[in-house]
Design a protein around this nucleic acid. Sequence first.
DNA 1: CATGAATGAGAGTTCATTCAT
DNA 2: GATGAATGAACTCTCATTCAT
Lengths: 213, 213, 213, 213
Amino acid sequence: MARKPADQSVNKQDILLAAADVLQRNGYEATTMKDIAAEVNLTAASLYHHFRNKDTLLLAVLEAGLEQIIGQIEPIVHSRLSSADKLRQMITAHIVSLTQNTAVAAAMIFEMKSLVGGRSELDRNGDTAAHEEFVARQQAVIARRDQFEELFRQVVREGIERGEFRPVDVGIFTKTFLGAHNWVGLWYRPSGRLKGHEIAELMADTFLRALRP
Amino acid sequence: MARKPADQSVNKQDILLAAADVLQRNGYEATTMKDIAAEVNLTAASLYHHFRNKDTLLLAVLEAGLEQIIGQIEPIVHSRLSSADKLRQMITAHIVSLTQNTAVAAAMIFEMKSLVGGRSELDRNGDTAAHEEFVARQQAVIARRDQFEELFRQVVREGIERGEFRPVDVGIFTKTFLGAHNWVGLWYRPSGRLKGHEIAELMADTFLRALRP
Amino acid sequence: MARKPADQSVNKQDILLAAADVLQRNGYEATTMKDIAAEVNLTAASLYHHFRNKDTLLLAVLEAGLEQIIGQIEPIVHSRLSSADKLRQMITAHIVSLTQNTAVAAAMIFEMKSLVGGRSELDRNGDTAAHEEFVARQQAVIARRDQFEELFRQVVREGIERGEFRPVDVGIFTKTFLGAHNWVGLWYRPSGRLKGHEIAELMADTFLRALRP
Amino acid sequence: MARKPADQSVNKQDILLAAADVLQRNGYEATTMKDIAAEVNLTAASLYHHFRNKDTLLLAVLEAGLEQIIGQIEPIVHSRLSSADKLRQMITAHIVSLTQNTAVAAAMIFEMKSLVGGRSELDRNGDTAAHEEFVARQQAVIARRDQFEELFRQVVREGIERGEFRPVDVGIFTKTFLGAHNWVGLWYRPSGRLKGHEIAELMADTFLRALRP
DNA sequence: CATGAATGAGAGTTCATTCAT
DNA sequence: GATGAATGAACTCTCATTCAT
């Protein structure tokens, strides 16, 4: 599992990747600092040189994951493709990211729930400034996730307006296929019958057919 | 929150319901015996009169939830309806169960992951006999979940054979809509714009259209 | 050191006494839950059955100590003695309490500084209600300490008004002898040349002479 | 808070002053190497170029503080003043030092307790030679503090012999006023009603009156 | 000199679990 | 049945300290 030889120093990126990995395997609550540290051949204490605390670390994982997937999706939205082609490409990008680049993207969405409810460790220490910064970042991540979802809604809406898609409840329809995607992150095994891009294609077929006028 | 007055004795059913509730609110890892106990006006220690340990209790929640939803789905599968009508009814039953009867059904599937990976306390304590029984029940639950999923696959397959549905990858298609369903359990709020049965209808539309020949 | 045989259960009082002991020996910051627990033959974890957390426990120590010493001092203030006799008795009571009944009273005042500045553990957990209760109790203790000091100021003021004492700066004079008292708690050793009541008598002489018109 | 611009190199003196400051603000146990380092714009690691370890650093603070106050007191003791005038000047010097020059002197005495009891890191690491040197310095500081106290006792004793003062228990009397002084360090606030020299004058009045034959 | 990275030790705290009453 | 008391294990986080650069 260890991704780094013991005699090299580790940077934030390494830790984020490792954390994303553990996060996806174990879920938010079950992920311990020790687990993450082990993944990069460090002790738990060492992680605190790079991140103030567990919540901040995991927040950084979500931020990175979100930016990465949005970075892939956004250009498609603004391209000159047909709405159908856009949606197909976006679905593929999302699912492939969830299966292949698993580490960073999947964990993110699945555990967003945990993030929202919890209280930060900073809160506990009375470091109000730091705590407020954390809350701000947390809300920023939630807002960013909404923007991510909005990108999909936008394309669905556009397709309907252009007459490419039948009129559907945009919100529900989007949540429907995003739910299907995210779930892939839970059952996908690299050793399975189909690869990520094959699954993506099948799912894209499903949802594009469902949108036919 | 407490569902029982303090002066009444509590039975397994009460505890299972309470546990399902807490489970759905907090997730597997974040659910404590104390939380569950509080819900039925007991102390954590008292729960051990009814269940051997936490894992067993939560396993029982899953068993009950699974049996309940399967109990709803199975008659539909064996009815004389068209495959399309069967699927529509099954989808509705599942989603409504996940939103309305939330407590028992939703928690179950979402947290199944936690169950599978973990080691039981019994294992650690060397109580081999008990542990083996636990593992057996655990595997039974997993098998039962597969049977649950198979019920959906069966109807899809049947619809294809009957020519009602276009030929699709049955496994992926089924996972697609089950994923979409399960995800509903995460974002659904009773106060939201649409009720469970409305969401169910929209989702059923989506997937039935996607199956049109 | 252990005050309780291992086979008896322990109550809050036992813990408070033990904690006061440790507190006086080690000071606020250096006092660990483990130290306190060891004193009553428990593990640190067990202390959490009796007190929410360390701060609450130590606050309870201060409360108990304050109430005890105020309980001794107050009747003297309201008695019909001359101001000089009152002050002599109060000084004696205070110093004897600080030396003899050391455990409960001495620790209290000496470490109040730490108390005021710190943030409570409850604060950290977002248990706002509990945290507010803690803050309230904390402020109550500080207020009570001020009342304690006021009892002494009152007698000095009264003595001046009655003409028994020369006019002095009441605030500074009171802080002067209370400082001298508290310091006793730091250097007093039961094995020393003089006992508590002897020291008390000498100190009372000093301060009463200083007050002679 | 930082006392040095970031682009200047730092010497032992700077560190000692900074440490004394932090020490007085936070107390011995709550003072961290990082706190001290921050005060002089260094990292904790850098402090180890100047001092072997935390205990040694803090010991040096005490040494410096002690020497400074003794340096102020001693000439007074050996002057040709009356005992009363000597004592008044010594009391003033001590209290003013504790309030004004706060940083170095107050911390020292207040925390001496911590010093005596603790075990040094050196001890734990088996560096016996270094540890022995540390213990020697530690004992030297304690001895020096006794000499400091002895300076006061000496003047009291002298005053009694000269007939300027009434006969008192020299040890207790000295501890009485030194206790009162030290306590000032705990409650004094520069923003308070009285300045250090005013407090000093009032306290000197008190103790000199108490010594009148 | 100075520092970033790393760590072992230990603190406070939580939690599932046991047991005597 | 139910509970209060107790505990071991595990977790987050802090801190003094070391070392290569």
